[in-house]
Simulated scan of single mutants.
Amino acid sequence: MRVVLAEDSVLLREGLVRLLDEAGATVVEAVGDGEALVRAVVEHRPDIAVTDVRMPPSFGTEGLRAALEARRLVPGTAVLVLSQYVEQSYASDLLAEAGLGGVGYLLKDRISKLEDLSDALRRVADGGTVLDPEVVAGLFARRRSGPLDDLTPRERDVLGLMAEGRTNRAISKQLVVTEGAVEKHISSIFAKLNLPPSDDDHRRVLAVLTWLQS
């Protein structure tokens, strides 16, 4: 899979290039700011844009904004965001665009584990959604009261794994239940969150967005 990488730290950028290579990706260009990321994606049309959130000049959310802008110019480009921080707004902004291509949000500590990085790259490249388990746990801990209060503890477990981008089969293995039980839990989650079947909306993504926004 072909990757454009954006990271402003030269040392970290070189280290990420090596890690991505070991994870089975080919970095077609590595850049140091958001404008260069947009240009590189338009030029190379990679499978994935991997970017830090905080980039020059203000070290706000330039990396995230640039990646999403690049995808608007090159539809279907997957976006994998790396961050040192658990930020609800970052995850929400990414998930809001999940229907346009694969998205992922990993903490930088996670990417040192090649198995986790390879798995995240594959799922995002395939159009899936990946949230770091620590991001999921942190956001659940900060969650205010709201529509998720009607969910049972098991349904919250299932929703948390859905937020990580896990399939029904993966969820069943993680929770040691049948796939049929997972399907029933998910159907109950959709019903409690008032998410009826729709040809236009991705209910799994909408369920996670409801959780993030609650």
Rank of each mutant, 00 (worst) to 15 (best):
A120S: 00
G76S: 05
M55H: 09
S58I: 10
P147I: 05
A78N: 03
A137Q: 14
L139E: 11
L12G: 04
T51G: 00
T129A: 09
P56Q: 08
G101K: 04
V31Y: 05
N168I: 12
A40Y: 03
Y105C: 08
I186W: 09
Q88Y: 03
T26Q: 12
R71T: 06
D52S: 13
A36T: 02
G128H: 08
P57L: 01
V81M: 05
L121V: 02
A66G: 06
L5Q: 00
A30E: 04
L193G: 03
L131S: 09
G160P: 09
N168M: 15
Y105G: 05
P153F: 05
P197G: 07
D119C: 05
S172P: 05
G160R: 07
L117G: 01
S187T: 15
P147N: 05
N194C: 07
T152H: 11
S83I: 10
L37Q: 01
L175Q: 12
L12S: 12
I171H: 03
A120H: 00
V53P: 01
L148H: 10
V177F: 04
V124R: 05
L175Y: 10
T178Q: 11
V38C: 03
L19E: 02
S187I: 14
L148V: 10
E179C: 10
D33F: 08
I171N: 01
L131N: 02
A96C: 14
V135Q: 11
D201Q: 14
E29C: 03
V3E: 00
V53M: 11
G127I: 04
G165P: 01
E43Q: 12
G60C: 01
A98C: 12
V158G: 11
L107M: 10
L161M: 09
V31D: 00
A49H: 04
D132G: 06
L175F: 04
P57H: 07
S9T: 15
L106M: 02
G24K: 04
S145R: 12
E134T: 09
T178L: 04
I111D: 02
A36D: 11
A96I: 10
D157Q: 13
R65P: 09
F190H: 15
V17F: 00
E115I: 11
D157H: 14
E179M: 15
I48H: 02
V158S: 06
G32S: 12
V86H: 13
S89Q: 08
T178D: 07
P153D: 07
A191D: 15
P133M: 04
D199P: 15
V79A: 00
A25R: 01
L131E: 08
S214K: 14
S92N: 10
D150S: 13
E183M: 15
R18Y: 04
V135C: 11
